[in-house]
């Protein structure tokens, strides 16, 4: 127990937790993106999916787990980021460019892209989860007409554009984060160099999927 506590209080242990929660959140965005693909099938399929998802009591467990993942991931990163700033006698902007630029753009801007995604996630919840309630009846069951809300939201050019920009930011965050998580967890070695590329592929699939949905809703209903 003491050993476990000292592990979690070390910088290595904290990065381990950031990686673990990051992978958990990656799993969430992947399933969220896959579920949203039902937008392409039609209003009934999408609304039924939303209804089934929110009418089981397990949704509360899932929500608690998700909020915990977010809090640990963001909280620990902010704590580590503060310590990282303190370990430099000069401001990051004054660091010599050459050595800094050897690291990828995505890897250098993780904290910033992460905070942008957090702000986006809050706004996203306000718009949809806590947004206006439209009712619809499918197969004799009354449920929330989420499809109508989604369709309505993505009629505005600027709003659709804002979503697309946010998905590019999500892409950069995932492209570095997904791969880096395996390094922090100690799973990468010389025999699995494909792990170095998996972040790019994962980010492309998730962000690409999310990118297509608002774009489709805008183009198909305009």
């Amino acid at each position: 127990m003491m050993k476990c506590k000292s592990f979690l209080s070390s910088s290595v242990g904290q990065k381990f937790l950031v990686a673990l929660t990051g992978l958990g959140l990656s799993g969430f965005v992947l399933t969220h993106m896959l579920g949203n693909l039902l937008l392409f099938v039609g209003p009934n399929a999408y609304n039924l999916y939303g209804h089934k998802l929110t009418s089981t009591p397990l949704i509360y467990v899932a929500e608690v787990v998700l909020v915990t993942l977010f809090v640990v991931h963001v909280g620990l990163t902010l704590k580590l980021q503060k310590a990282n700033r303190a370990s430099r006698p000069i401001a990051p902007s004054q660091l010599p460019n050459v050595c800094v630029k050897r690291a990828s753009f995505a890897s250098r801007t993780m904290a910033l892209s992460g905070l942008m995604i957090l702000s986006f996630a809050i706004l996203h919840l306000v718009t949809f989860k806590f947004g206006p309630y439209y009712a619809v009846t499918v197969d004799g069951v009354e449920m929330r007409d989420l499809y109508k809300l989604v369709q309505e939201s993505f009629q505005k050019e600027w709003y659709t554009g804002f979503y697309l920009v946010c998905m590019v930011i999500l892409f950069t965050h995932l492209s570095h984060g997904f791969t880096a998580a395996f390094q922090s967890l100690g799973l990468s070695n010389t025999h699995n160099t494909w792990l170095k590329r998996i972040g790019f592929v994962f980010a492309l699939v998730v962000a690409g999927g999310f990118f297509s949905q608002p774009l489709y809703m805008y183009l198909a209903h305009h």
């Binding site: 050595c99 890897s107 922090s184």
Partner: peptide, 30 residues
């Protein structure tokens, strides 16, 4: 500071020490 997995260290190392060592350190700590 802690590691952000940017890989700038590996690029600058005069002895070309690999990032694989860092994954091993994380494993050893766990």
């Amino acid at each position: 500071g802690s590691c952000s997995n940017t890989g700038a260290c590996e690029a600058a190392c005069p002895k070309e020490i690999s990032l694989e060592n860092m994954a091993r350190l994380n494993r050893e700590m766990l």
